[in-house]
């Protein structure tokens, strides 16, 4: 009987204890719990500060990165245009192929330069002569011993000019009254213009780093 009662009592006490402490903190005193709570709060504060700082950094990086990405993308597009303008990259597009015959060897470098200027005026964006010489801003037309040199490269007739741009406008520019075609015909040659949806300008112009020119400080 006494044993039974003792067991009952023990069970009752155990039950009470159990309901009161169903966690990991049963061994902890109240002061310890408060201390733990306080240090947890402090750690949470510190962590939140770090999170806030990192979030700010991330926002800055994101906007900076985005801006740079846009800048780089724009720069790439500009670079692409510049490679066409400087003749350092091959170019393709609609345009014309012009063939100039010169049976009397009467065509001069000045005639060709004038023809190039007409094409520029008509919006030519990339020009190549005889599939060999890329015509860029600094391309010079000269003569030596009756032969025509374009950027120092001897070009024999018949001359061919490939130009990318509006094929209609370019061809009109060549055959307009008093234009290149008239001029060449006057010299005994013939000019034919062929419009094409795709003209490929393959020859390249190599550039040297400028020695005397500095970008102007703005």
């Amino acid at each position: 009987m006494a044993v039974l009662l003792a067991a009952l009592g023990f069970a009752a006490v155990a039950q009470m204890r159990l309901t009161g402490a169903d966690d990991d903190y049963s061994g902890q005193r109240r002061e310890n719990l408060i201390e733990l709570l306080e240090s947890l709060a402090a750690a949470a504060d510190r962590t939140q500060t770090q999170i806030d700082e990192l979030e700010q950094t991330r926002e800055e990086l994101l906007s900076s990165s985005e801006r740079r990405q846009i800048a780089v993308e724009e720069a790439r597009q500009r670079l692409e245009v510049l490679t066409v303008l400087t003749g350092t990259a091959a170019a393709a597009g609609p345009g014309v192929t012009i063939t100039i015959t010169d049976p009397e060897a009467a065509v001069t470098s000045t005639n060709l330069l004038n023809g190039i200027e007409e094409l520029r005026d008509a919006g030519a964006e990339a020009i190549e002569m005889n599939d060999r010489v890329r015509v860029v801003a600094s391309t010079s037309f000269t003569e030596r011993d009756g032969e025509i040199l374009v950027d120092g490269v001897k070009l024999p007739s018949p001359y061919s000019i490939e130009a990318i741009g509006s094929s209609h406008t370019l061809s009109e520019a060549v055959i307009f009254r008093g234009g290149l075609a008239d001029e060449i015909e006057r010299l005994g040659g013939k000019v034919s213009v062929e419009k094409a949806d795709l003209v490929e300008v393959q020859s390249l112009h190599s550039i040297d780093a400028p020695e005397y020119s500095q970008p102007t400080e703005s």
């Binding site: 500009r78 245009v81 393709a92 597009g93 741009g165």
Partner: peptide, 11 residues
């Protein structure tokens, strides 16, 4: 620095 017709082919 914009082109209407010509496209660069290869960098």
């Amino acid at each position: 620095d914009n082109l209407l017709y010509a496209e660069a082919k290869g960098a």
